[in-house]
Computed example of a mutant assay.
Amino acid sequence: MGATELILVRHGESAGNVAATAAMAAGAEVIEVDRRDADVPLSPLGEAQAAAFGRWLAELPMDQRPDAVWSSPYLRAQQTARIGLDTSVAGTVGTDGGGWAVPPVRVDERFRDRELGILDLLTPLGVQRRFPEEAQRRRWLGKFYHRPPGGESWADVALRLRSGLLDLDIVEDGRRVLVVAHDAVVLLLRYVCEGMTEQDVLGIASTVSVRNASVTRLVRDPATGYWQCVDFNLVGHLADEGVPSTEHAGDANARPQ
Rank of each mutant, 00 (worst) to 15 (best):
residue 189 L to Y: 01
residue 205 A to H: 09
residue 27 G to H: 06
residue 64 Q to R: 13
residue 120 D to N: 09
residue 204 I to P: 03
residue 239 A to N: 11
residue 187 L to Y: 09
residue 171 V to M: 12
residue 26 A to M: 08
residue 194 E to R: 08
residue 128 Q to N: 09
residue 17 N to C: 05
residue 242 G to L: 02
residue 67 D to C: 07
residue 30 V to Y: 12
residue 76 R to D: 04
residue 194 E to N: 05
residue 18 V to P: 00
residue 223 A to D: 14
residue 42 L to N: 02
residue 22 A to S: 10
residue 91 G to F: 07
residue 225 G to I: 10
residue 121 L to C: 08
residue 62 M to Q: 13
residue 179 V to H: 00
residue 140 W to Q: 14
residue 235 V to I: 15
residue 177 V to Y: 00
residue 188 L to T: 09
residue 242 G to V: 08
residue 257 Q to Y: 11
residue 70 W to C: 10
residue 122 L to Q: 12
residue 73 P to W: 02
residue 139 R to T: 14
residue 182 H to V: 04
residue 5 E to Q: 15
residue 159 L to H: 13
residue 244 P to C: 07
residue 118 I to R: 11
residue 164 G to S: 04
residue 253 N to W: 14
residue 31 I to C: 04
residue 16 G to S: 06
residue 1 M to C: 13
residue 111 F to S: 00
residue 70 W to S: 06
residue 129 R to C: 07
residue 48 A to S: 10
residue 195 G to I: 01
residue 216 T to F: 01
residue 127 V to A: 08
residue 185 V to M: 03
residue 139 R to L: 15
residue 185 V to P: 00
residue 16 G to V: 02
residue 111 F to A: 01
residue 79 Q to Y: 01
residue 1 M to R: 12
residue 195 G to F: 04
residue 129 R to H: 14
residue 110 R to E: 02
residue 179 V to L: 13
residue 136 Q to K: 14
residue 106 R to D: 12
residue 224 T to M: 03
residue 142 G to F: 10
residue 87 T to H: 04
residue 188 L to M: 05
residue 78 Q to P: 03
residue 120 D to A: 09
residue 246 T to A: 12
residue 124 P to R: 08
residue 6 L to V: 06
residue 183 D to N: 09
residue 185 V to L: 00
residue 234 L to R: 15
residue 242 G to E: 11
residue 59 E to T: 11
residue 86 D to E: 14
residue 59 E to N: 11
residue 65 R to N: 07
residue 49 Q to P: 06
residue 232 F to H: 13
residue 152 E to I: 03
residue 186 V to S: 03
residue 88 S to A: 15
residue 118 I to Y: 09
